[in-house]
Design a protein around this nucleic acid. Structure first.
Lengths: 353, 353
DNA sequence: TTATCGTATGAAACCGATTTCAATTTTATA
DNA sequence: TATAAAATTGAAATCGGTTTCATACGATAA
């Protein structure tokens, strides 16, 4: 087989099937959709012809006629990030169970791409759009963008992960405050009082909410907040590495580090190792997202999990019921829980007092 | 904002635009496609109305009329695997540049899902299908499946990653032999002679080709192959961990381990650490795929890279030219190269001799 | 045997774009 | 200014399904 020439075969239509079966296209359509009765013998004859030709009804024609494509568009920031890929696959599976399929587009964090992807999905006439992460936060500052999203909402329901007041969207949010609450109680329960916070941008809502709760719990336990223990940045290993380097240079080192996600935590681990300290004997590390990274690094990370399967289900459920015009609560919450592994342990004696 | 009701607005069509502009739908269509001249003043009037309503032509209607959707369907084994997500994003970007969009489906390694996804993409009338990994290997044993793929090829071009003789598909293959060649020369150049091979299934072509080359190079340097140094399994960290455990129990330990991918390598690193050995001082580790995992673990992994950007471009280029009926070579190769990091070093003196 | 009711079926309209073809308007040329 | 040539334009057909509506058919009851 040298050169192949493919895709030249004629695609057959419902009319071809109808002709061969000696019936009208309407009848074939009824067999396909099951929306109306067809006499048994004809039905079987038609089905066998469909089989024989491997006939697959044109989804474009069907969607055009139905004005529903049974497709949910998903815009993710970047599926190369395991958080998004886990969520996407969960959505794909949940959608399938609900009789929908999904269509993925990556914004790659660029606002122009995100808008282009949005347009693309709208042209494809998806029944609803799920936006995971992305530049949603820009809505707060970029009025033109906010107007655009509002215009989209007029025709197609939009579901976002995270809170959003500037447009009439549905949202599925992680209970960030609860997540941080679990983390803080876990650490404080282990005797930690000097707790650092690494990575994330304060302008991002989910990060800000975590920080709020962090302070709240410190206050609750009468622990004085140390400004030097909070080092922001982005969400990658490099940030975790550099922030932790800074923190470990401090005179009064913390005994625990909370990383904004598993990536940042992996960077923190590297920094700690280079400082010849041990996790969790000298310092504990805990993070958010519980991606497979948590299971891959050494030591394995204690991390906050969101149950991606349920999370995806909730997103799809919200999207499909909005698409079907059901009137639903527009904010739903995902409850986090801690998965304990090897990176957290009791605060070292020396610092306990 | 309590409950939101969205998606109830009427979607406007080319006819609405035409009516408001006082022209026929044909004229509006000509403005949209740019396929024919329209007088300047009308053109501007129409464009401003399109702007005003944020009109987006229905891609279903367009696809139905054109018989081309400018969409490439992609079936990946699992985008949660960074190898596939990197490749997918590369394809998405390359497709965009070529004026196409992509539609992703995950087979999750299940043959039934893969077939269902294939049907889905065909119904969506994608112009071509790219199959990454997946159960392609089953073609060799499953004749019904092979027949199905052959039937698909009749109407829609199929591009697979990896070699395939059982169906008239195009393929883009990694030069696995070259990859292993680079790895072996790298290790042998560092003085390694006792080299182990960890993970992968021999029935998978890419793994088999690597193994062939491994033996060939050993022979070339007159090194006796040690059967105990080759431990297969799957492609996950667990496999790497267990295989390496087995290997490190051997009387005559190897000085280098080649892992089938970065996941397996991360498991190998864990095992090595637990055996209180150091990488690369006591033992070198090298792997394939150069995903971000390689950069995340400690020490950072030396790994074989495929230049995902070019790889994706090649896949898309093959798919689009097949879709456009161009007659092209049906097998193309991706050239690998080694990215050196911290996990490989000279063979330990003691074992050199 | 005939009237009646329910079921099965086909013709035709529709979904929203593109494109061909013929008609009309402009523009250029004589 | 008349006429030929070129540029615009709209009507209608088409892509491949679904669905409504009217009709034909079959079965049941009187």
């Amino acid at each position: 087989m040298e050169n192949v020439r493919t895709g030249t075969g004629k695609t057959i239509t419902i009319y071809d099937i109808a002709k061969e079966a000696g019936v009208s296209a309407s009848t074939v359509s009824r067999v396909l959709t099951g929306n109306a009765a067809v006499r048994q013998d004809k039905k079987e004859r038609i089905q066998s012809i469909i089989q024989k030709y491997n006939f697959r009804p044109n989804a474009l024609a069907k969607g055009l006629s139905d004005t529903s494509t049974k497709t949910i568009g998903i815009i993710a920031a970047d599926v190369r990030n395991p958080y998004y890929s886990a969520l996407f696959v969960a959505c794909e599976v949940a959608a399938e169970e609900a009789g929908y399929s999904v269509s993925l587009a990556n914004s790659l964090g660029e606002k122009e791409r995100e808008q282009a992807q949005l347009d693309l999905l709208l042209q494809q006439r998806v029944d609803a759009i799920i936006q995971m992460g992305g530049r949603v936060d820009d809505l707060i500052t970029d009025d033109a963008y906010a107007e655009k999203v509002r215009s989209v909402c007029r025709t197609t329901p939009v579901v976002v992960t995270g809170k959003l007041d500037k447009a009439p969207v549905h949202s599925v949010v992680i209970d960030e405050a609860m997540g941080m609450n679990l983390v803080m109680e876990h650490l404080i329960g282990l005797g930690h009082k000097k707790i650092a916070l690494v990575g994330g941008e304060m302008r991002v809502n989910s990060t800000y909410l975590k920080y709020q709760k962090y302070r709240e719990i410190l206050a609750k336990y009468g622990i004085q907040e140390n400004g030097e223990y909070v080092v922001n940045g982005t969400y990658d290993p490099e940030t975790g590495y550099e922030a932790t380097n800074k923190i470990l240079e401090l005179k009064d080192r913390p005994t625990a580090i909370i990383a904004i996600n598993d990536f940042a935590a992996s960077g923190a681990l590297r920094s700690i190792r280079e400082h010849r300290l041990h996790v969790p004997e000298d310092i504990s590390v805990i993070s958010f997202d519980n991606t497979y990274i948590a299971d891959l690094v050494m030591p394995k990370l204690t991390s906050v999990d969101y149950n991606y399967e349920d999370y995806g289900k909730l997103l799809i459920e919200t999207a499909t019921s909005a698409a079907e015009g059901k009137d639903t609560a527009n904010v739903r919450m995902v409850q986090p829980e801690i998965v304990e592994r090897d990176s957290t342990g009791p605060a070292p004696r020396s610092s306990r007092k």
